[in-house]
Computed example of a mutant assay.
Amino acid sequence: MYIRKILLFIVLAGLVGGGLFAYKVYSAFFNPNTKFNNDEAYVFIKSDDTFNDVKEVLTPLIEDLETFEQAADRKGYATNIKGGKYAIKKGMNNNEIIGALRSGNIPVKVAFNNQETLESLAGRIAVQIEADSVSLLNAFKDASFLRNKGFDNGNEIVPYIPNSYEFFWNTSAEKFRDRMVVEFNRFWNDDRKAKAKKLGLTPKEVVALASIVHKETAKVDERPRVAGLYLNRLRRKMLLQADPTVIYAIKKHANDFSIVIKRVLYKDLELDSPYNTYKYAGVPPGPIAMPDISAIDAVLSSEKHDYLYMVANVEDFGYHKFAKSMAQHNRNKEQYIRWINAQKINR
């Protein structure tokens, strides 16, 4: 009888202990473990983060860090961290949180506009993905990459077409750069290539010319007319004489793209730079900024006309007055010079 009581006690103790253990395991995995009020919270985990880094990120978001650690250890997550952007939903348990961190990497939208330099592009991208601006700039300027892809120091900015793209947040600098080349090649489909060939230009030359069009006018509806003007000048072997190229040449010569130039002076036209289209014929060796798609397509589908000259229209700001002859252009120019002098804009 005594032995039976002992055995019964052992069995009961085992059942209680097993029940407590099962409850503890269940609680660690399946009890809700969030403490924020929003429907979901986002966490960013770097590619080289450790489990301690992950816990630091999650501390403000979860109720019981200890049970999370236990669950993460049992599921093998603590030794298999994956970088990315993840969503933690309100009321998630540890099992669901770990599942989200393991396979729920969320893409992010990466957007950039017409940056003037690779440095400014790197800075713009670095605030949107994990890669920092230094690693991005090094990837952009990598000599072997440029050589293998058919670019050089004059047109290394060409592959980056301003738009909105989807990336994983933990994308490396090299993967971002390589993806941009893929997007560039996709953009230059057979139709666009055929249009460029008909103009007697390569895709790189179209981008360079489009960058001038982009800088000349912010009015998208005017860009095909401006593009047609420059194409007319190219066909007639005339200098493009585009003020934005002079401004770019000045900035590049000074190695300072923060300079603000509102007026191009006659002395500026003498600057010896391949980007100065008052001195050198043809399309510059590379873009003076990243033209957006509307500017590129404006070149490829330019307006057909006989205009050869243009000047800012002071009666309709943002637009230009166009002329077919130098005499007509000089009349338009006089009005502009009177206006700019009245504004006392000397630089």
Rank of each mutant, 00 (worst) to 15 (best):
K197E: 14
A111V: 10
A218M: 04
P244M: 02
N189P: 03
V264I: 08
V260T: 13
V206Q: 04
R4D: 06
R263P: 02
N346E: 14
A173R: 12
M1L: 11
H253C: 03
G19E: 00
K304D: 13
G17N: 05
D297N: 15
V226M: 07
F322W: 03
A122M: 09
I97N: 10
Y275W: 10
R347M: 08
Y160W: 03
N80W: 11
Y42E: 14
R74M: 10
Y26C: 05
V54Y: 05
P244C: 03
D297I: 05
V207M: 05
L121S: 01
H214E: 15
D48Y: 11
F184V: 01
T50H: 01
K55A: 02
K35P: 05
V110K: 00
L146I: 01
V311I: 04
A298I: 04
E130D: 09
D297T: 11
V110N: 00
A87L: 09
A100T: 08
L234M: 11
I106T: 13
R225K: 15
D191S: 13
I296V: 13
N153W: 06
A143N: 07
N138M: 11
L199W: 13
P284C: 08
A126F: 01
L137I: 07
V181Y: 15
H329N: 08
N153P: 00
I3V: 12
L58T: 10
I10M: 12
E183W: 02
T117W: 09
N255W: 03
S47P: 02
I337D: 15
K24E: 13
Q128N: 09
F176C: 01
A254V: 02
G14D: 01
S273W: 04
F21G: 04
R192V: 06
D297Q: 13
Y165V: 04
T79F: 09
Y86D: 10
K215P: 03
L209N: 04
Y266A: 11
S164R: 10
K304P: 00
D49E: 07
A254D: 14
L265I: 06
G200K: 08
K55H: 01
I261R: 14
V220H: 03
P60T: 01
G154N: 15
D256W: 02
I125H: 03
A111E: 14
L146A: 00
I247P: 06
T117A: 10
A323G: 09
L136G: 06
A13N: 03
T34C: 06
I98W: 12
L201G: 10
S172Q: 14
S120V: 07
K251H: 06
G84C: 06
G99D: 09
E205Q: 15
F145G: 00
Y160M: 00
F9H: 10
I97T: 12
M290L: 14
N37V: 08
L229Y: 07
N31T: 13
K262P: 00
V311H: 05
D272M: 05
F167A: 08
R147L: 13
R331T: 15
G91E: 13
H253L: 09
L15T: 11
V57Y: 02
L58A: 08
D53N: 15
E183R: 10
T202K: 04
L7V: 14
D178S: 13
D64Y: 00
D132E: 03
N114I: 01
I345H: 07
N313P: 03
N313V: 05
R223P: 00
Q128P: 01
V110Y: 00
A196W: 14
S135R: 12
